[in-house]
Design a protein around this nucleic acid. Structure first.
Lengths: 144, 144
DNA sequence: ACAAATTATGTCGCGCGCGATATAATATAC
DNA sequence: GTATATTATATCGCGCGCGACATAATTTGT
């Protein structure tokens, strides 16, 4: 009779543990990121740039699975810190082009310590970790 | 030689897909929650109360894996909306006791439509979903 | 009994992350 | 060629979520 209310138990939600784990991971990262003067969102942005050297904002939005208006102010902060340069595409002035400065490139040397510091903490086994990531990417790429 | 830099690729991070999926799930929930006039954090709080009728703030913090200062203002909003009452434990006046009002109890009838609406969207198979949740809870309960 | 430690909550300031809306540049239609 | 649609980004306002710090109630040590 009240079976349908079981859907409303925290333990039966996908949203709840996903969100809680995301927060927990952020809390773990933040003290490490503070040492290299980056916030989490700035960190993942820099990761894209360390890999690609240059991106336009539109592609960055896709790569990070965020919305453009979330990036605007964060990119300005990264520019203020001197890690990136923000310019416009001369061929299509609507497009923002973000590129790495020397200082930004150099930051990579320090940033490598973040994943290194966490690599020793075995939150999951290698096998579980692989499964976990593949399920996350299935969710992320799913059309819903 | 540059192998250690592979640690800095987005695809090799746990934080990145977890956080991105959490955001994506929130975006999916928000329009549904808007219909019952709750934010996500208010929703998970109400879920605890629908199950337990009454909690103190300390236990709520543990149940939701959040920090107390995150809850303070959100609880006031729920109180303003008339769904909960906020009182103090007479035996230990440091403790806040949160209880469900009739209006809050009644909201459950409408809230059931949120998980119902999503139940048809098969983001993962049942088996995958089970695995996914168990890995999340392992992460959530892990000591790191 | 009472000073010091502990516990539960509150205040403040910051950085998101978003939907809604606005604006400017380019593309399309006719 | 010019009105209209589309695209890329920006602005605004809100609700978190947190660390750092402050405060009030209770407990502990002696």
């Amino acid at each position: 009779m009240n079976d349908e209310y079981e859907l409303l138990l925290l333990e039966n939600q996908v949203c709840f543990p996903t969100y809680a784990v995301a927060n927990k991971i952020l809390r773990r990262y933040q003290p490490l990121l503070k040492k290299i003067n980056l916030t989490y969102t700035q960190y993942i942005t820099m990761m894209v740039l360390w890999e690609k050297e240059e991106v336009n904002e539109k592609d960055l939005v896709k790569a990070l699975y965020l919305k453009a208006n979330t990036l605007t102010n964060m990119l300005r902060k990264l520019e203020q810190k001197g890690y990136i340069e923000i310019g416009r595409d001369e061929n299509d002035k609507r497009n923002i082009i973000i590129s790495l400065t020397d200082e930004g490139r150099y930051l990579k040397e320090k940033a490598i310590n973040v994943p290194k510091a966490l690599a020793d903490e075995h939150w999951l086994t290698d096998e579980e970790f692989k499964t976990y990531k593949s399920l996350l990417y299935k969710l992320l790429k799913g059309d819903w």
